[in-house]
Design a protein around this nucleic acid. Structure first.
Lengths: 184, 184
DNA sequence: CGCTGACGTTAATGGTGACTAACATCGGCG
DNA sequence: CGCCGATGTTAGTCACCATTAACGTCAGCG
């Protein structure tokens, strides 16, 4: 929805508390309290936004993994999916890992659950590729790769999108290839 | 200073606008307006915090690079420095790349300058190691590595600090080693 | 002793912002 | 036509919060 898009851009730029309902309304051409016709409140708007992101990421990951013919292919599918999403929705990525704390409780738990499932999707694939590697290490590596891939908002415009996608894919692939080294 | 430490933790957790002067005072055992004896205002407090971080990072990088015997050693020194900082000051790292937009103008320009210098320190070293690689690509890769290294706040507690440091160092090193591949 | 400067405290004050109320507009459909 | 639900609008209301004012305390030192 147009409202959620505008809100995502604003939240990413100034943070949840740095954006007023008026700002969001203004960004879509209506003014202020009109938003209450569509959302029960500011927090509910954020909740819907983050829930939607988490669902899309998790659903895409689950489907890619189950249709991949091999763990190697599954990992590549996960990487491409995350890169594609991060490049096309930088604000959503930013808000997604910054503003969970402002989501009220019923929804927050569900978002957390989906995020956990998403991470476990990665950990499962990685553990097939690196059976000797303890899960905690795989989880930490997964978060590290997310950090790498989600860096796109910080290097905005340095490279054309295609080149950036290839660069990130290459870096992430090789970064994950080190996981069999025992880390000593 | 104790006030800046407490403020950093609070800003990292709830965002600049999500924290009140009262909150910060409360966290150090005084209450509210007492902080105006130490800072001219909330934004000035943030400015001092970010300026200090940027200076420390840049100064440490500059000294490590100039004393390193080779580009390879310089890169390792940069990596270790950033990892050490990220692991010991996760909140500062978080605030540092989230809240620059809330710093008022005189200070903001200076922080940006230091951040840019810090990045260029990395790019210079990398360009000696990968002479064929265009600077824009090196800059993007640098930001990607920052994202990887700064992921520690997200994987808090998965691994003991030493193991996490080694994991991040290994992943970052190999991720950067791909830079000679032409990205096609 | 008595001043002074560092540091705190508790009341304003003033602005901002989420949310609600009361009041249009208007397209569709009986 | 005339009602209705969806969607907006503008004017409150009320809480929160940064900042300032006015007023202690007290250690050090003349």
């Amino acid at each position: 929805m147009e409202i959620l898009d505008a809100a995502a851009r604003l939240f990413a730029a100034r943070g949840f508390h740095g954006v007023s309902i008026e700002d969001i309304g203004g960004a879509v051409g209506v003014s202020g309290p009109a938003l209450y016709r569509h959302f029960s409140g500011k927090e509910a708007l954020l909740a819907e936004m983050l829930l939607d992101v988490s669902e899309r990421l998790h659903a895409s990951a689950a489907s890619r993994v189950t249709t991949a013919p091999s763990p190697e292919a599954a990992l590549d599918a996960l990487l491409s999916g995350q890169i594609e999403f991060a490049l096309s929705h930088p604000s959503l990525i930013t808000v997604h890992d910054r503003e969970l704390g402002n989501v009220p409780e019923p929804a927050r738990r569900q978002i957390r659950r989906l995020q956990r499932l998403y991470v476990e999707e990665w950990v499962t694939v990685l553990s097939e590729l690196h059976p000797a590697c303890p899960p905690a290490r795989l989880r930490a590596a997964t978060h590290a790769v997310f950090g790498l891939l989600n860096s796109t908002p910080h290097s905005a415009g340095e490279l054309p999108e295609e080149a950036m996608a290839r660069l990130l894919l290459g870096m992430a692939r090789t970064a994950l290839a080190t996981l069999n080294d025992d880390g000593s």
